[in-house]
Simulated scan of single mutants.
Amino acid sequence: MSIRHGLLALLEAGPRYGSQLRTEFESRTGSTWPLNVGQVYTTLSRLERDGLILQDGQDDGGHPLYSITDEGRGELKGWFAQPVDRTSPARDELAIKLAMAVGAPGVDIRAVIQAQRHHTVKAMQDYTRLKAKALTDGPADRDEVAWLLVLEQLIFQAEAEARWLDHCESRLVRLAEAAAREPAPAPTGAKAPTNATSRPRARR
């Protein structure tokens, strides 16, 4: 998540102060990724240091206002034009957990998958209810449309995760079946079987 560019996008609409930016960011994303005020002001300080924003007076309540600069608009334009890089994906805790569970002693990986599937399906149902409520609340303004986009992404992500968990379970079943068909290894030090077709040597 790019807080840096999100704040620049909000400042493109006009001067804002820190807590106002926090409120608008969370309103636009449905509080999916909540921010604290300290995080906002730390980011604003860095943006100001980089020449992308500047302090632009105060509002009636004495809050310092920030405005985007021409350099900031160029940075924002480039961010919107550039695809999000997927060649270095962020670490996914679930994928790491299942990878570590494979072959781990005492871990029932199918139970891990079942527990995660239950949680994922419940989350998907919750997101779907939120979407239905948003659609029946009346005409959507800009922030509500933005929240719907985020919400639908969460729904699609949960659906994909549920399908992936089904795939993982199917793969484990196939591996278990293949392992069951393999002959058991001979015990260490076992004697070679006697050749049944050979005849005992005659005594002279």
Results as ranks from 00 to 15, higher is better:
residue 146 A to P: 00
residue 65 L to S: 02
residue 125 Q to K: 14
residue 61 G to D: 07
residue 110 R to M: 10
residue 104 A to R: 13
residue 143 D to C: 06
residue 95 A to P: 00
residue 196 A to L: 06
residue 65 L to R: 00
residue 73 R to E: 07
residue 56 D to Y: 02
residue 169 E to A: 15
residue 31 S to Y: 14
residue 105 P to W: 02
residue 163 R to S: 14
residue 159 E to T: 14
residue 204 R to F: 12
residue 64 P to H: 05
residue 191 K to T: 05
residue 75 E to N: 13
residue 57 G to K: 03
residue 33 W to F: 14
residue 27 S to F: 05
residue 113 I to E: 00
residue 12 E to N: 10
residue 193 P to V: 13
residue 62 G to A: 05
residue 104 A to P: 00
residue 174 R to L: 09
residue 129 R to A: 15
residue 182 E to M: 07
residue 94 L to D: 05
residue 89 P to I: 04
residue 100 M to L: 15
residue 152 E to W: 06
residue 87 T to K: 10
residue 148 L to I: 09
residue 164 W to E: 08
residue 42 T to E: 12
residue 87 T to W: 07
residue 119 H to M: 14
residue 24 E to D: 01
residue 28 R to K: 12
residue 149 L to I: 13
residue 56 D to I: 01
residue 189 G to C: 01
residue 173 V to D: 09
residue 54 L to D: 01
residue 194 T to M: 03
residue 182 E to C: 04
residue 116 Q to R: 15
residue 84 V to W: 08
residue 91 R to V: 11
residue 197 T to E: 07
residue 22 R to E: 00
residue 94 L to F: 11
residue 56 D to L: 02
residue 78 G to H: 10
residue 155 I to W: 06
residue 160 A to N: 13
residue 172 L to F: 13
residue 169 E to I: 12
residue 84 V to Y: 06
residue 23 T to V: 01
residue 86 R to S: 04
residue 56 D to N: 05
residue 23 T to D: 05
residue 95 A to S: 10
residue 38 G to K: 15
residue 97 K to C: 04
residue 186 A to I: 02
residue 55 Q to V: 03
residue 3 I to F: 06
residue 38 G to P: 00
residue 54 L to S: 08
residue 27 S to D: 11
residue 131 K to M: 15
residue 9 A to D: 09
residue 174 R to G: 01
residue 181 R to M: 05
residue 82 Q to S: 11
residue 139 P to W: 04
residue 27 S to C: 08
residue 122 K to G: 06
residue 74 G to M: 12
residue 45 S to G: 10
residue 166 D to E: 15
residue 143 D to F: 10
residue 94 L to R: 11
residue 113 I to Q: 00
residue 92 D to N: 15
residue 145 V to T: 04
residue 198 S to L: 10
residue 46 R to C: 06
residue 175 L to F: 10
residue 39 Q to V: 13
residue 130 L to H: 13
residue 115 A to L: 12
residue 84 V to R: 13
residue 179 A to K: 09
residue 119 H to V: 14
residue 40 V to R: 04
residue 17 Y to P: 03
residue 99 A to M: 07
residue 102 V to I: 13
residue 115 A to V: 10
residue 88 S to W: 08
residue 195 N to C: 02
residue 73 R to V: 04
residue 114 Q to W: 08
residue 43 T to F: 03
residue 111 A to E: 13
residue 15 P to Y: 08
residue 46 R to A: 14
residue 180 A to W: 02
residue 26 E to C: 07
residue 117 R to N: 07
residue 174 R to S: 03
residue 176 A to F: 07
residue 66 Y to K: 08
residue 128 T to S: 15
residue 176 A to V: 01
residue 13 A to C: 04
residue 185 P to A: 03
residue 3 I to R: 06
residue 137 D to R: 15
residue 77 K to C: 02
residue 170 S to D: 12
residue 122 K to Q: 14
residue 58 Q to D: 01
residue 96 I to L: 12
residue 122 K to I: 06
residue 58 Q to F: 08
residue 2 S to K: 00
residue 10 L to I: 00
residue 117 R to I: 07
residue 68 I to M: 14
residue 192 A to D: 09
residue 127 Y to W: 07
residue 178 A to Q: 10
residue 70 D to N: 12
residue 7 L to R: 02
residue 51 G to C: 03
residue 156 F to P: 00
residue 78 G to K: 15
residue 200 P to V: 03
